[in-house]
Design a protein around this nucleic acid. Sequence first.
DNA 1: CGATCGCTTGAGCAAAATCAAACCTCGTGG
DNA 2: CCACGAGGTTTGATTTTGCTCAAGCGATCG
Lengths: 247, 247
Amino acid sequence: MATHLIRKLERFSPLSGEAKHALERATSITVRQLKPRQDIVQEGDKPRQVHVMLEGWACRYRILPDGRRQIMGHLVPGDICDLRMFILKQMDHTVSTISAARVAEVPSDTLLALTDAFPRISRALWWVSLVEEAISREWIVNNSQREAGERLAHLFCEIFLRLRAVGLTNGQSCDVPLTQAELAETTGLSTVHVNRTLQDLRAAGLIILKGKHLTIPDLAALKAAALFNPNYLHLDRDGGAFDANEP
Amino acid sequence: MATHLIRKLERFSPLSGEAKHALERATSITVRQLKPRQDIVQEGDKPRQVHVMLEGWACRYRILPDGRRQIMGHLVPGDICDLRMFILKQMDHTVSTISAARVAEVPSDTLLALTDAFPRISRALWWVSLVEEAISREWIVNNSQREAGERLAHLFCEIFLRLRAVGLTNGQSCDVPLTQAELAETTGLSTVHVNRTLQDLRAAGLIILKGKHLTIPDLAALKAAALFNPNYLHLDRDGGAFDANEP
DNA sequence: CGATCGCTTGAGCAAAATCAAACCTCGTGG
DNA sequence: CCACGAGGTTTGATTTTGCTCAAGCGATCG
């Protein structure tokens, strides 16, 4: 069930079979099935549990008083919605599904027991949260410095690599359940401009995007068009030095 | 010496006198005096120590292959440049001074000993890093959804509140050693446009910005102009429940 | 079969970028 | 003490990018 989470944590360092089992168990106590556009955690919440994405997409967002909405992050299977809740008193943004989704609810106590028993998991969660921070920072660069075409190209590179890291790509393709309006809210562009820019990217042969399906015929070319530097995703086993059989 | 760091950590929860002393000691072993625009940590670095800002400003930034530069965060006294280095293999961005600065170098071992001896400090550092993440996310919103005037107004609100939290404001004023070019690289605007927008803000009586000195005659008005919501700064003792005299 | 949602297109407009030049201030060295 | 130069700020003119408004199109689903 928690395959993607485990695959993601093992991007940091290998886990023991016991640790993996404990994670499986923890994420299968309570599983909620959600419809598209349903809130998972709301701004102001002070949750007693942590939510893990098992299937489907969600996003972090904030709405300005005058209605403008900005998406600040995408959550795909394996991502955790509200890990920070261990420390922060309350959520400072809302997390809501994009597509239909399955979400595991892990009670704080269960998670605490898990991190106590397996320091390895604890370190991997720390790591996950730092990578998320790095992604946020890259989004600042993307939405501030890159122009429309580069911006969308960069987003597609990131999405593809993140999905590939948890085993959710199929050759050069993956599912991306975002509407053009959501792409606009992600990149800080207008819907109309996203539409026109997507047409340019398609015309340039950089992407094939139809329905919810994205194909990248030439990843290197798309990266070049996006000025993409994958460092920030930390895809290369940062904690590789650790041994899987230690706790 | 580490007054601002301590003040900042105590925003999370009070620290014991012993913990504070240990922090003072750790941040006074090696102190470097830096000139403006000098790198503190570089992309790709795998440092053996952590850098704490004692005096002056610095910033995190990234440069795109074609030369465009984006500032992704400001560091003021009390901030830590590379806390994430505990876990991540290498820096994914560069940190460089803005003004002249004094920076403490804390060897990893010293910091580890400190967090082992004082779990309270450990938790507060965790918290600091989560707040930084929240700030990054708010910058996404700022640079993507707000227009020039709101964007700069928002930045000034944030800077003022952050400085006030560590005791670096003086009534309605504070020092802000950023040039207009740096404001531009922060907000994702051009220097020229920043200049004109600052004039608008001045004309509207929202800010008095002369040299390196900022005065905000009416903070509420500036907040309103910025659509500013301070939640993300977590200025209200998130860990207030803890007792200062526990470790 | 009509309603809704998402995508597409066109026309006009506004915000911000770019280019270029002038100006100011402050530190430095003659 | 003044001239010089560098860095920073200001201004004007022009262009570009992306936004807004408005409408049409095409699926898909009760």
